[in-house]
Amino acid sequence: MKVIARGAEAIVYENGDEIVKYREEKKYRVPEIDLPLRKGRTKREFTALSTCSRAGLKVPKPIKISSEGDKLHMEKIDGKQFDYVFSVDKMKDIGILLASINELGIVHGDLTTANILAKGEEIYFIDFGLSYFSKKDEDHATDLFLFKNALKARHPNEFKKAYRLFIEGYEKTMGKEFKGIETHLKDIERRGRYHENG
């Protein structure tokens, strides 16, 4: 097995056509926190990936969870991490995909440009470890909020245009439900600390 990525919480291996995502033990936290967290996230990720892929959305198809519960086997997507091949041209598609996922009642919970793969013209979402089921506008708004912040931090120069295109795609797909989500987004942003210019 070949290591293809080492993220903050997992090592990703390639094993033939399969990707194995192993959530390693974190020695800085006590086992009582560490183990349920790693197993829980692996399970969440499996559930979200299978719901999305059954609906035909672009995510890796999950295969199985290892018996120890901390390794997720899934389909290999031969793409590049989007933060390295960042382009505003893809932002609208990202908005559309996120809206479709939210419409299924799934909140990604951790969308960043590192959690998106670009394969040719197509984009895929990965890393659903912090995902959960919710139909609430407020929870869908957190996906927008987190992605907006991640864009601002990692791609500050392209941020304005990128975010506008992203929202355009999101709003178009979400339709009239977008209004409510947008209201919650503004609310979350207000609640955040230290906002001088609204």
Partner: peptide
């Protein structure tokens, strides 16, 4: 302590990995 510090560590580690 264990819970909130672990959360802070995770957030810090994510920033280190992402940036």
């Amino acid at each position: 302590q264990e819970t909130v510090f672990a959360m802070l560590m995770e957030a810090s580690e994510r920033a280190m990995a992402y940036c």
